[in-house]
């Protein structure tokens, strides 16, 4: 499942809702991305391409299910104006075994970093600037490339 929303999310509630009633699940992995302030950040505004964002997140989610034996998964990504410390993104994966949950959760984040159409603009004391893409995000995405 995927959701794109302005509002904050509650990790505990999301995990409980995702796993309720499914006793085949033996492990749940989750990742929460936060707005980081390394000095002087007032806020961060996330813009996205409504429509394409949902399509891309659905594809990323489906790809995780194709690669790992998942019982359930969830991607929640926020948009709009966020302040330092606020959660931006949540990925949860649930499987019978922990390794599939860990690996697929990592995969979801690496893929959405380069495949989901979001753009961050930072507001600091000296004005606003668009965040530049990171090459190590591309490298992180590449390590999941299937060979053969």
């Amino acid at each position: 499942m995927i959701r794109v929303q302005r509002e904050a999310f509650d990790v505990g509630r999301e995990i409980a809702a995702l796993t309720a009633g499914n006793t085949r699940i033996g492990g749940v992995a989750s990742f929460v991305g936060l707005v980081r302030d390394l000095g002087g950040l007032r806020s961060m505004t996330l813009e996205h391409y409504a429509g394409m964002t949902e399509r891309q997140l659905e594809k990323i989610d489906a790809e995780a299910h194709r690669r790992w034996p998942l019982e359930a998964s969830l991607i929640v990504h926020r948009y709009g104006r966020l302040e330092p410390g606020e959660p931006i993104v949540l990925t949860i994966t649930a499987s019978a075994h922990r390794q599939a949950a860990f690996d697929s959760c990592n995969f979801l984040m690496d893929w959405l970093k380069t495949e989901a159409p979001f753009w961050k603009r930072e507001e600091g004391a000296d004005g606003e600037r668009w965040v530049a893409a990171r090459t190590d995000d591309d490298e992180a995405r590449e390590r999941w490339r299937e060979t053969g």
Partner: peptide, 10 residues
């Protein structure tokens, strides 16, 4: 058709 810079979500 949409044009945009490299994405920076997550």
């Amino acid at each position: 058709v949409a044009f945009f810079p490299p994405v920076t979500g997550g």
